[in-house]
Amino acid sequence: MHDHPLQRFFKSQRPRPTFEWERFQQRDVLVIDHPKCQAVFSRQGAQLLHFRPQGQKPWLWCSAHWPQAGAIRGGVPVCWPWYGRHPSEGMWPAHGWGRLVDWKLHDSSEDNDGVTLHWRLMLCDWQVDLHARLGEQMELRLSTEHQDSLPCQLSHALLAYWRIGDVNEVSLEGLDGVRSYDKLSRKTTTHTGELEVTGACQRVFSGASQVHLKDHAWARKLAIHTADSEDTVVWHPGSRPLLGVAGNESQGFLCVEATSGSQDNLSLAPGEKAHLTLQARLLN
């Protein structure tokens, strides 16, 4: 398994401040080096691209080569204000504008246990805030406030690419008895036992607030919480080629996503807020 492409920032012998802006593949990235963890955010999309608690392997996967313009594949893209294809505008970008535009770093701070960041995006009649808490664990909280005088429709997701040893040697606990919709076969079923990914997978699990990602190759288990989301989506392309992803790079990730509104859009009244949370911690 190759090094994470953003690990290069942490190999220098020079002392590095906790927060430092760098330029990488034509993007502004915020490099975070704290005694408890290392991380990298992109200003574009407020996208957490790399996270590694001290002494551990990276938790997030990121493609080695990024397009000159457009979305970066990997980390935790913020899919907003729609998830997937737009329901009526076929030419609009998949997963919305949120991951394509620059966000403002509203605040950042550190303490003995880690770092806290607050990103903000003001777009049309929405205020979107992403709060991140990183240390020995990872927490991302996305909040959307609708500031128009008329109701609006919304779907959103925190689409996490989890770094793994080999997709053929992972399984997910916590989905036994949970109803799911298979977007590839277009069938609804109730899942039984652990989920193993064999080939392409795109499953939407309703009401699964916590899953355990068992990575047998790396002898690691992560608890992934999606508590306030409607659905937990599990996705992997299988052998299908992905634009910008070379060779067998895709063997090194599995997407477990927190989503809401992906089946039926959320309706927000004026002044109403919508929230989405993604948390992870090491179990062994």
Rank of each mutant, 00 (worst) to 15 (best):
L105W: 06
H106P: 04
H106M: 15
H106C: 14
H106G: 12
D107M: 11
D107Q: 12
S108M: 12
S108D: 10
S108A: 12
S109I: 14
E110A: 15
E110P: 08
E110Y: 13
N112W: 10
N112P: 09
D113E: 15
D113M: 11
D113T: 15
G114F: 03
G114M: 09
V115N: 02
V115T: 08
T116Q: 13
H118Y: 07
W119F: 10
R120H: 07
M122A: 09
M122I: 10
M122K: 11
L123D: 10
C124D: 09
W126D: 00
W126E: 01
Q127I: 03
Q127C: 13
Q127A: 09
V128H: 01
V128W: 00
D129T: 08
L130Q: 04
H131W: 15
A132P: 03
R133D: 12
L134T: 07
L134I: 09
G135Y: 01
E136Q: 12
E136W: 06
Q137S: 13
Q137N: 14
Q137R: 10
M138E: 02
M138D: 01
E139H: 08
E139Y: 09
L140D: 13
L140I: 12
L140A: 10
R141Q: 13
R141I: 06
R141N: 10
L142V: 01
S143R: 15
T144P: 02
T144H: 05
E145Q: 15
S149M: 15
L150V: 14
C152Q: 08
C152L: 13
Q153G: 07
L154N: 00
S155V: 15
S155C: 12
S155P: 12
H156I: 12
H156P: 10
A157T: 04
L158H: 03
A160V: 03
Y161Q: 06
Y161V: 03
Y161P: 03
Y161E: 03
W162Q: 00
R163A: 04
I164Y: 00
D166W: 00
V167W: 00
V170K: 00
V170H: 00
S171N: 11
L172Q: 03
L172K: 01
E173W: 05
E173Y: 07
E173T: 06
E173S: 12
G174W: 02
D176F: 11
G177E: 11
V178Q: 07
V178P: 02
V178E: 05
R179K: 06
S180C: 09
S180A: 09
S180P: 04
Y181R: 05
Y181K: 06
D182T: 06
K183G: 06
L184P: 03
S185C: 08
S185Q: 11
R186N: 15
K187P: 04
H191R: 05
T192C: 12
T192G: 09
T192Q: 09
G193R: 11
E194C: 06
L195V: 06
L195D: 00
E196A: 05
E196T: 12
V197I: 12
T198P: 04
G199E: 07
G199P: 04
G199V: 04
C201A: 08
Q202W: 05
Q202H: 14
R203W: 08
V204M: 05
V204K: 03
G207W: 13
A208N: 06
A208L: 07
A208D: 04
A208M: 07
S209T: 14
S209N: 14
Q210H: 11
Q210R: 14
Q210T: 15
V211M: 07
H212I: 08
L213G: 01
K214H: 14
